[in-house]
Design a protein around this nucleic acid. Structure first.
Lengths: 278, 278
DNA sequence: AGCTGCATGGAATGAATATTCCATTTTCGC
DNA sequence: GCGAAAATGGAATATTCATTCCATGCAGCT
């Protein structure tokens, strides 16, 4: 008693959401039944703690309120109020006055340039949230594995996908990965450079561009693996691609922000480079 | 009494943050002093309503709590609790389980590709929030005005800024605005095409590329207006640009998401096209 | 089987907070 | 200035919610 209570109850209270999460995973498995239910439910709904009452959490987890209180104490807090404060602070830091600002900009009327910025920012943010939510991790891992083995990586993306392809070219170059950007300068194409052992990343969105699909088909015929970045559901390109990564980019007006596509493409590039070095 | 209370108190309660905002602006000016203070403070801190108590709001506005209650009723709510519910719902809809998902992805360990996605998404989101917060509306309006008058718009952006420049070229083309992408193919450049009456958009970030700065300087010598997209504080390019738009893009590792830059560039393009048509 | 210690549920308590009410002050029309 | 009506501040009340406490149940050990 005088030296240490038990392995469960460390007295220091988590000061950040990360610390909270660490503690939660550390406790996993060594908790009694009801407290484990709390832990599971809370892990799954961490963001709702900031706005929920003890009773709501308890109901969601299927336990009495007192169990939730015990859980809070085991996590190192004096009670629920203290635990909630942690999440509330995280929430206010995440959106200080951003929401207000956006709303102000949007309210300015359709004609104002600043209103457009707000709309595009909003579309981009939504796209990225959708990406985080719907990411197909298995397909991503498969894509990384495939590309990491390739001798050189070919990049196909035209029209509105070209910025993504060209950014990938820049990033691969910086990372020391051999990459060929198929830019179609002078109508020549670089089709002959699709050699055995290479791989292709094809980036195309509805309406799918003929050139990209044709290039992917050619690569496939020559036996090169093809990774496609496209809209969901991705069926349009599945005939010519081995791995399909889908991104639901939100449009505003006729244009898309590209935020989510670039984030995904960038991750792919960095992961491939990291895999190669090991 | 039986027909209508007054112009102030319409009985229907706002069902969305937008409706709330509309009502607030509608009431502006026709409120007694203390209630006006409430309105001002709340308009300025709308996002904090979800997490504040009546007492906190009252203190912030410099009024007694009862004034805040009256304000809520004038806005069409039964009380503060009902008003707060509106903002809480808006907040939870904005971040459904996105935060949890992101945290889960990040927790996966540095090696996993999905972790990278989470990091880039997060960086992108932060960048866009920063853009919304720090947007210099005056500079933006000035840039739009300048570009709308130009005969043709030249685009300069190399290396990591090239994707932005090429996307602008695509968008301007689709919008029917004459634009020249200076892509440096074959080392030729298109310097001779910088004719009087044109304008230049120069996109460059630290470390600023020599080519872009040189091109901007040349344009300036010939009397063309130059709009620059760059990092804050923008002093590096202010010598060669008439209008400077700064974007604080957050890096993850050595790479930036480009989300905010693209959102700003896109807004600029659409605003210019809209201005031209009128 | 009986004992011991932990886990559990629910009811009682107490604190925080929204909400109402009323006495007082201010404002505005005459 | 005077009176009526509206506005205001603060204290009283009601409600919601976190927190504690204790009686009961359950499991593991001897």
């Amino acid at each position: 008693m005088s030296k240490d209570d038990s392995e469960l109850a460390a007295r220091d209270t988590p000061q950040s959401v990360e610390a909270f999460r660490d503690r939660l995973t550390g406790l996993n498995g060594q908790l009694p039944r009801r407290l484990q239910q709390c832990a599971d439910h809370i892990a799954r709904h961490m963001d709702s703690i900031a706005l929920s009452t003890v009773a709501q959490i308890a109901e969601g987890a299927g336990v009495p309120p007192s169990a939730v209180m015990r859980f809070c104490q085991i996590m190192g807090f004096s009670g629920y109020a203290e635990m909630q404060r942690l999440f509330r602070e995280a929430l206010t830091r995440a959106a200080p006055d951003y929401a207000t600002r956006l709303a102000n900009l949007k309210a300015g009327g359709a004609g104002r340039p600043a209103t457009l910025v707000a709309e595009f920012v909003d579309a981009g943010r939504q796209s990225m949230e959708a990406l985080a939510r719907n990411l197909d991790e298995i397909a991503l891992n498969q894509a990384v594995a495939t590309l990491a083995q390739a001798r050189a990586i070919h990049l196909a993306g035209f029209r509105r996908s070209f910025p993504v392809a060209s950014y990938l070219a820049y990033v691969f170059d910086k990372l020391g990965v051999a990459a060929v950007l198929h830019d179609g300068v002078a109508g020549l194409g670089q089709r002959a450079s699709l050699l055995p052992g290479d791989a292709l990343i094809a980036i195309t969105f509805a309406p799918w561009s003929e050139e990209t699909l044709a290039l992917a088909a050619l690569a496939r015929d020559r036996g090169l693996p093809v990774v496609a970045l496209t809209d969901p559901p991705g069926t349009q390109v599945s005939a010519v691609a081995d791995t399909v990564l889908t991104v639901a980019e939100i449009d505003f007006g006729a244009f898309r922000s590209l935020s989510a596509v670039i984030a995904l493409a960038l991750s792919l590039a960095v992961a491939v480079a990291a895999r190669r070095e090991t």
